[in-house]
Structure formats: C-alpha cells, structure tokens
Nucleic acid binder design. Structure first.
Length: 936
DNA sequence: ACACTCACG
DNA sequence: GACGTACGTGAGTGTA
C-alpha cells in the first residue's frame, strides 16, 4: 500500500470509549464491589479492553492506541441545533459513578485516554484519523457507530467489535448505498431519530442514497431539487433545504479538534503491574486478574518496564547501573547527569527528591538527589557521601560529581518553567535548596494532591501513599540509616543503599503523581489543589526561613524563676502529702490523693490509674483542699519551664539566632496547618504566668512585631454557612456576639449584661461550633447536665437554623463520607458509619465542626498566599513570620508600621473574595509591639 | 511505645 | 437505654 510509506508500518487504533461503556453496562447484570459502588460497566469495559489488547497481540498489532471519550453532554452541536440529542434519556443512576472509574480503568491498562470539552468522541476520532491519513499511517476505528463510517477510506478502516469484522469502503457501500465520502450527504437527508438530527421529512436511507447517487452531492441536489419528478419529495426538499444543511453540520465530524496529546503520546505501552494491580484489587476484579496472570508483573518489579523498553526501542542507558538494582542507577559523572537532565527537559516532567544530613530542613545539608522521568527507572546522584566514621576504606566511596558543578547543572532544570517538578512534600526540598540559591517551580506535590483528594481519610506520607495506591512497600528511611544510637547520617549511608532508597523515592513519587493527579478534576478538587494547596509551599518556606527572634536571656531568666518557685512548692507539697514523692508522676500523685488521703471524687482512667487531670484537681481545690491547688500551680510552672523556657532555648538555630518552626501542610483533617519543631502555635497566652513567655518573642532591631487576627471568624462562618439571619445582622452591626446570644437564650437585655451570664453564652457558642452535647457543655461550665440540656434546648428554639444545619451536615457526612468547606475542600470523616454509637457520635461532631474550622483555614490560606505580593506591590519590607490559625505575625520595619497595617488588614479581610462572598463582614484587628506579648 | 497531661486556636 | 463526649492540634514526662 503506497500510504504506508510515511508511517513505516505504524498502525493506530482508536477506540470509541463511550460506545463501549453503554455496551458493557447493558451486557452485564448489576454488580457491586465491596464498598457498594456499582462496577458492572467497569468490569465489562475492562474485560473488553483486556481482550482487545490480547487479541491484537496475536495478529494485527497496533503501534499506537487511544481510547476516546465524550467529555460532557453539551458540545458545539448544541449551539447549532439546541435539540441535538435532546431526546437522550439521562444515564442510568448506577452507571453515573462508573464513568470516572472507566477512565481509571483506561489509565490502569496503561492506555492513553482522550476527551475534549465541547466535542464528541467522534470528533476527536475524526481529528486523529485525519492526522493518521496525513501521515500515511494505518488507522482502525474500533466502533459499531455508523456515524464514524464517513471516515473510512485510504489507510482508515473500522473494526466492529460487536460483529468482530473489519469495515472498509465496500462495507460502507453495503450499509449506506454510497461510498464513505458521501455518507455525510446521505445522513443529512435521512436524519437520525436517536440523535434527533432532523434530516428531510419523508426521506429515508434508500431514497437518500438514490438521490445522492443521482445528483452527486447534497448541494447539487438541493440546487436542482426542482427537477425531481415525485411532487411530495420535491416539495419536501425545497421547503426543508435548510434542515438538510443544518443536519449536515450536525452529522459531519470535526477534524480540527485541539488535542491534549500528540501522535507520539499514543504509542502502545505494555501493561504495568504498578498501575493495573491496585486497580483490579480496588474493584475486586479477581477473575480478570487471574486471567491476565503472567502478563502483569508485580508493582515496581521492573520487568514491565524492561518490556516497555523492548517495545519502545533501546533504553537511553544514561549511566552505568549499580549491580542488583537494574532500574535504579547511580550517576557519578557529569556527562551522565547532563544526559538525565536533558531527558527531563525533553519529557517536560520529572520527579525529584533530595537526601540530606538532617530531617530539619533549616539545618540540613544536601547529600544527594534523585530523578525519575518514567516509571520504573530512576537515578540517584550522590554528592557528599563520605566513608563510615570518616575513615576512608579502599573503594568505599567512589568519585562523586563536584558539588557546585552538579548544582549548576541542576539549578536551571528546577527553575525551568517548561518542566514540571514533581515531589513529595516539596516544601522540605525547597527549603534545603534555598540556601544554595536553587528554586523549584513549577511544581506538583503528591502529598498535597493526596490531601486535596482525601484529607482526613488517612495520612499523606509517601510510605502510606505507596502502600495505598501502588500496593508497594517502600524501603524505609530507618532501615537505611538505622535507629537510636546506631543511627548514621545519610552522608554515611553506602552509595548502593542510598541509590536503592533515594531512586525508589523519586520513582514512587512519579507513580503516585500518575495515579493521583488525574483524579483532581474528576473528583472536583482541582480548584482546591490549585488555589489552596499548590501555592503554599513557596509562601511557607519564606516564613520558615525567616524564623522569629527569641530572647534567649529572657527565657533563661524565666526558667530560673520557675525552677526556684517550683522547688519551694515541692517542699510544701511534700509536707501536705506527708511524704516525699515525684510531683511530676500522675501515678504517684493519684495514689497519694485517693489511696492515702482518701479524697473524694476520684475517677480511674481506662488503664486503672487514678485520673489527676486539671479538671479533677480543680474540683478538689474548690472543695477547700490545699494540696490539689498547689499541684495545679506547680504543674503550670513545670509545663511552662520544660516545654517553653527550656526546650525553646534549644530550638534557637545557631546559624541564624532565630527559631524556625516547620509548618505541616497536610496533617489536619480540616485544612488547618500545624506547627512542629517547635510548635509555635501553642505558645502560652491564657494565663499571666504563661504570657511572660511571649515577652521573649521579639522583633529584630529597628523592627516591631505586628499581630493581625480574625475576630470571631468561626462564629461568623457559622452564621454564613448555616444562613442565620439574626446572627448575620448582629455581626453586620458590630454587636458583642456572646452578649447577643445570652440575650436571646436567657431573655435578658444586652445592656448591663451580667459577665457570668455572658460567659455561659460564650461557652454555648463555642459548644455549637464543636457539635454541642449537654455533657460537654455541663463539663465546661461546671453545671448539672440537666441545666446544660435546658440551655441547648433554648438555644435551638432561638436559632432553629443552626439545628437544621447540624442535621443536614450529619446527613451529608453519613451519605458521602466527607463534608466540604465553602471553598470546596473535602474533609473526610472516616468511621462515621461505624457500628459503635460512640464513635459515630464522635465523627458526627467532627463533621459539624469541619466545614466551619476548615472554611476559616481556607480563608487564612488564601490570605497567606496573597500577602507577599500585596506587601511587595505596596513597596513594603514587612515579613510574614508566623501563622496561628486565625492570626498572622509580621516583622515590620519601625518606619513602615502605619503603611503596613492597612495592607495586611485588607488582604486578610478580603481573602475569601472573589471566590466566595461571605455574607458576614470579616473583621481583622492588628496590634504592634516590641514583643509578641505587646503586639497581641 | 503509649498514656497522661496541658499548651494553643 | 447505653454508649462516653465538647472540635482541631504537638510536646514533654513518666511508665511499661
């Protein structure tokens, strides 16, 4: 065949996925997997795909393959003719959830899937068929849809998967009575009742073919319609000529659809166990799995990838391979590194990971890095490995690429805006590389993608995700470095071990990205990821790198003061107890109070030990016992000393003289950040003694600290989300919301409100946010449960909308397993359908709280993301240092304080806009001072 | 490693 | 009627 000259024997198969879906659905009885999701169409589709792939193996082998789907119900054809496909019934209810799974199936079988918004699958197929024809490549359209027959001809044919027969020009003539190029004209006349294409009344397929054969084409026919002898037929053609032309526009396939993938992206890839096995597992497709048997290698085993190499030509072999790790290579010379970087640039995507001397990014030195470009193959580039214990044994440490030289090669790749860098918790890598003048952008972070998809459902560490999505047990960090006193630095790990560990990290990250990224859109959290997750690492590394200045001398002074007072107290405590004991031991204390002194009201913990929590001791103190009060005072100081004044001194970074916390982006179930090493989100403030700690957090010389916090943000969001008009009005008027609640619940005027009554209302307000219970409120206020019940009852009578919100939220949580914030973040509540009533109730309260706490967290994220640019645009040098959930702390040059304040307030107050217009004003208050205590 | 306690929003 | 409770975190200490 002359057309094969340009294609060099290539053969493209285009599978009409949408057709397959309906056929699979109707061919199989209703089936569900373990979690109740219907999967009959998914199984049918997977079976067809598997059979199709194996059949083709034996005979007419494809070199290129794509499954094409319809993207949605409306296309450009609806603009031409609004009634197009209007009579189509909606998809059956139990088919709807299977559409996304079928796309997953395609991915799992390692087959390219294409869908383009605004076009039908047929148009995409037409575009690719025309491209194949242009290239002189053989092309087979796999479908039994007659609308596609217009594409047949030259190198393009069809394969009817129902009848399993090839359709060439002869078969088209057989079906339509005209050759393929005239099919459109015939269809324009005959119309299509299924798709609601009008055609010309009174003309069926026979007549249409006869007319087109006689006149040659539709335009000629319409122009010469007057010559037709049959009066009815002539009249219809003349009056409905426009219908025929519109029909032609509907029937004719568009061959110029913009495609997301190029021709080369459709190259056939072999089955990959890492993709396929988790999918089969998840959907309980056991029979299919055994059927595929030997064709699928186990996850990450590498055989599939070597098969891929065999099919796609020889591997680039960029570096010598370390024995025993066929797919993971160690790169120790510049040329090999340059080759990997060139391949990454060509691919446009690279997974990246760093190995360092410390888990603390601010202290860490780079030891090496790893790259992965395609699943199953990765490189580790050691840079600063040294022999164990500093003793160079012969051949222990091979040559490594000079450090600066490697960084110079790496730097432009990580900054290249046409190469996507994929990492797992890239904030860490960015912080490590920051000091070498290396930035990473653009980026995708698998941890954050997982968090956007399944926040609250499970952790998002790489080991956990690998097990979950790839069915793969990763090499553990501890296994490589050892633990405890025998732990060695990563720079002392042997290069072979390091390669095994580090290259796998990059490989797994790349695979996780392939598994998770496509789900963002399908599961409607792409915007959450793009606006609330993806931009944050850049913002946070600047905050973490800035750190905050802590006055070590002040902490030491406080520590000495606390120690002195504690030892005095200990003497008194031992005297009151009648013997000496470890005051810090809850066990010994419980024995003294309840066994020896026989004080009343002792309750045991679930371990059988006496409970000695603050609430218990507080009760005893209120009854007039001296010892519990002293213990409480001692404990307060002990806590302040050990956790704050002492530990914090050790957290001062010797290089910067400042304290650099680390913010966890994906550790909470609601979207909040958390702070560790040290936790700067729980620095004391509630008591006078504790507040002293804040005096030690100070601004650098010439600067002040500015603290800006959202006022009552969660109650405001509750009013917005639950739609409580009276609460909204109160906030709009700037009222004291707790006093207003007290007035409503207790029927008293706001003027001259008793502070104790207001306190009770405040507790109720907090309780509401937490998913109130009479027990909890009673405990909080120290009142009988019956009284608390009465308060709650009255509250709900005054605000029935709140109860309605709570019930609706619980119902949503039970039905879908997650609740959402106003920005669409999903907060999963696993176990909400648990058999334990206690656990269910617990998760229900969490579900009530999550949209409120989570929406506030989202607003704060938006403010933080916008803040650096807003400050920069205003020409201000203020630096954002800390975030404490509803508060931001800045370090501001003294002479810019008054210019900075309105910028900060404006960004924070407007942070929800324009995405969401909160129907209650958000109010931010900002204070300044030399120390955090003063600024607050 | 886990329980307990307690610091914050 | 029983279930055991306020929502979300992290860290230090004691104890097994």
């Amino acid at each position: 065949m002359p057309t094969e000259a340009g294609g060099a024997g290539d053969h493209l198969y285009l599978v009409d996925g949408s057709g397959y879906i309906f056929r699979a659905y109707h061919a199989l009885p209703p089936l569900t997997r373990a979690d109740g999701t219907p999967v009959n169409a998914v199984l049918g589709f997977s079976n067809i795909l598997a059979r199709f792939l194996s059949d083709l193996d034996s005979g007419d082998r494809p070199t290129h393959l794509a499954v094409v789907f319809d993207a949605g119900r409306t296309t450009f054809r609806n603009e031409i003719y609004p009634d197009y496909k209007a009579h189509r019934p909606p998809a059956p209810e139990d088919l709807v959830p299977q559409f996304a799974l079928i796309r997953e199936a395609t991915h799992a079988f390692n087959v390219a899937a294409i869908e383009v918004e605004g076009f039908e699958a047929d148009d995409v197929i037409a575009t690719l068929a025309v491209e194949a024809r242009r290239r002189g490549v053989r092309c087979t359209v796999v479908s039994s849809d007659k609308d596609l027959m217009q594409l047949v001809g030259g190198p393009v044919d069809m394969l009817d998967p129902v009848k399993i027969r090839r359709i060439g020009p002869d078969e088209v003539v057989e079906k339509f009575g005209v050759p393929p190029e005239k099919v459109v004209d015939v269809q324009s006349l005959m119309g299509d009742s299924v798709d609601n294409v009008p055609g010309v009344p009174g003309i069926g397929q026979k007549t249409a073919a006869e007319l087109i054969n006689l006149y040659g084409d539709l335009d000629t026919l319409l122009a010469r319609a007057g010559e037709i002898k049959q009066p009815k037929r002539r009249e219809n053609l003349q009056t409905h000529a426009d219908l025929a032309r519109v029909s032609r526009e509907l029937v004719r396939l568009k061959a110029d659809v913009p495609l997301p993938l190029g021709f080369d992206d459709l190259k056939v890839r072999p089955l990959d166990g890492a993709l396929l096995l988790p999918f089969l597992e998840q959907n309980d497709f056991k029979s299919l799995r055994s059927k595929l048997g030997g064709r699928v290698t186990s996850a990450l085993a590498g055989a599939a990838n070597r098969a891929a190499d065999a099919a796609a030509g020889p591997p680039p072999a960029p570096a010598p391979e370390t024995p025993g790790t066929a797919d993971y290579v160690t790169v120790t010379d510049e040329a090999a590194l340059a080759a990997w970087i060139a391949r990454a640039r060509a691919a446009g995507t690279v997974a990246f990971d760093t190995e360092t001397t410390s888990l603390d990014a601010m202290q860490a030195e780079l030891v090496g890095f790893s790259l992965a470009i395609e699943a199953g193959r990765a490189a580790y580039v050691p840079l600063r490995h040294r022999p164990r214990g500093g003793l160079a044994l012969d051949g222990d440490v091979p040559a490594q690429i000079p450090f600066e030289r490697a960084l110079d090669l790496l730097r432009p790749l990580l900054a290249a805006d046409d190469v996507l860098k994929i990492g797992q918790n890239l904030k860490y890598d960015m912080l490590v590389l920051r000091k070498y003048g290396i930035a990473i952008a653009p980026l995708d972070d698998t941890m954050l993608i997982s968090y956007a998809l399944e926040g609250g459902a499970h952790g998002h560490g790489m080991d956990e995700l690998a097990g979950l999505h790839l069915g793969h047990e990763t090499v553990k960090y501890d296994a490589v470095t050892g633990t405890g006193k025998d732990r060695i630095g990563f720079d002392e790990v042997s290069i072979a071990d390091a390669t095994r560990y580090a290259a796998e990290d990059a490989d797994v990250t790349l695979r996780l990205h392939a598994a998770l990224k496509p789900r963002l859109f399908r599961e409607r959290v792409a915007t959450v990821y793009e606006t609330l997750e993806r931009p944050l690492p850049q913002v946070l590394i600047e905050m973490e790198a800035a750190g905050i200045l802590v006055d070590r001398a002040e902490l030491a002074r406080l520590s000495g003061d606390f120690a002195h007072r504690m030892s005095e107290m200990e003497g008194e405590i031992h005297a009151l107890a009648g013997r000496s004991f470890n005051v810090g031991s809850p066990k010994q204390l419980g024995e003294i109070l309840f066994d020896e002194m026989k004080l009343p009201g002792g309750k045991r913990m679930k371990t059988g030990a006496w409970g000695t929590g603050a609430d218990v001791l507080e009760d005893l103190a209120d009854q007039g016992h001296e010892l519990p009060r002293k213990i409480l005072d001692w404990r307060q100081l002990a806590k302040l000393k050990s956790t704050y004044t002492d530990a914090l001194q050790g957290q001062i970074n010797p290089a910067t003289g400042r304290v650099h916390t680390s913010y966890a982006l994906a550790s909470t179930s609601t979207g909040r950040l958390s702070s560790t090493d040290p936790n700067l989100q729980n620095i004391p403030i509630r008591t006078e003694e504790g507040r002293k700690i804040r005096r030690a957090f100070v601004a650098a010389p010439g600067h002040v600290l500015m603290s800006a916090d959202y006022s009552q943000i969660e109650l405001r969001l509750l009013a917005h989300i639950a739609g409580i008009d009276s609460l909204k009005a109160a906030f709009a008027r700037g009222m004291d919301i707790h006093a207003m609640t007290a007035s409503e619940v207790f029927g008293l005027p706001v003027e001259g409100m008793d502070p104790m009554v207001r306190r009770r209302a405040k507790a109720i307000n907090f309780g509401i946010i937490y998913g109130i219970s009479a027990f909890g409120l009673a405990n909080q206020l120290g009142i009988p449960q019956g009284e608390a019940s009465a308060y709650i009852k009255r509250y709900f009578e005054r605000f029935p909308g709140i109860r309605a919100y709570m019930e609706a939220t619980k119902e949503t949580a039970h039905r879908q397993g997650f609740v959402t914030t106003v920005f669409g973040r999903k907060c999963h509540v696993p176990g909400i359908n648990d058999k334990s009533a206690a656990r269910r109730a617990f998760m229900e309260r969490a579900a009530i709280n999550a949209p409120i706490q989570g929406s506030a967290a989202d607003i704060m994220r938006r403010a933080m993301i916008r803040m650096p640019a807003a400050l920069k645009a205003a020409g201000l040098k203020a630096k954002m240092l800390l975030q404490v959930h509803d508060e931001l702390v800045f370090e501001v040059p003294e002479d810019e304080v008054e210019a900075t304040r309105p910028v900060v307030i404006k960004v924070m107050e407007g942070a929800a806009l324009p995405a969401v217009d909160i129907s209650v004003p958000l109010v931010v208050e900002a204070g300044t001072g030399r120390s955090w205590a003063e600024a607050h």
